[in-house]
């Protein structure tokens, strides 16, 4: 048995979770009136906490949220998107195959340095656009983020 009075934490342990409390604490509470009084104060407090009414909103939360949910996209929309992509890619692939001899001639007259310039510019612009899209995406995710 503990001969010293219980600490406040030990008193709380007993008041909050009596079944899982250490035996020495339970024995002390049983024998010590002063500590038992402290336990009773905590038990009174916990009773008061447990009796607190459940807060509730004065509107139908479920209804309000469901109204704001985005309408799911119809599967037809997705199919159309893929069909357009397929047609687009097919068109450019077909054009490239059909006109490949002309394309080769087109670039013959252009200086190598100019080709590099065009390619570097294109990469820089595309890179900038991708970076900008990524930053925008991050900003939006930050707003939504946990």
């Amino acid at each position: 048995m503990v001969t010293k009075h219980l600490t406040d934490d030990e008193v709380q342990q007993y008041a909050v979770d009596k079944p899982n409390c250490e035996i020495r604490i339970a024995e002390h509470v049983h024998l010590c009136e002063k500590c038992r009084t402290k336990v009773e104060v905590y038990q009174l407090l916990i009773t008061g906490i447990k009796r607190q009414p459940q807060p509730a909103f004065d509107f139908d939360l479920s209804e309000a949220v469901l109204k704001q949910l985005p309408v799911p996209k119809a599967s037809g929309d997705r199919l159309l998107t893929w069909a357009l992509i397929f047609i687009g890619v097919g068109f450019f692939a077909g054009a490239a195959y059909y006109f490949h001899s002309y394309l080769a001639i087109m670039f013959e007259g252009v200086a190598t340095i100019l080709i590099y310039l065009i390619v570097i510019s294109a990469i820089t612009i595309i890179g900038g656009l991708v970076f900008d899209m990524y930053k925008k995406y991050q900003r939006e995710m930050k707003v939504l983020d946990l």
Partner: peptide, 23 residues
């Protein structure tokens, strides 16, 4: 005897109201 006084408090006062203010 504090035990009695605790009981008196519970009966005499609405403990949940008091605790609500403290919380």
């Amino acid at each position: 005897n504090f035990d009695e006084s605790v009981d008196t408090f519970v009966i005499g006062k609405n403990i949940s109201e008091i605790v609500k203010k403290k919380i």
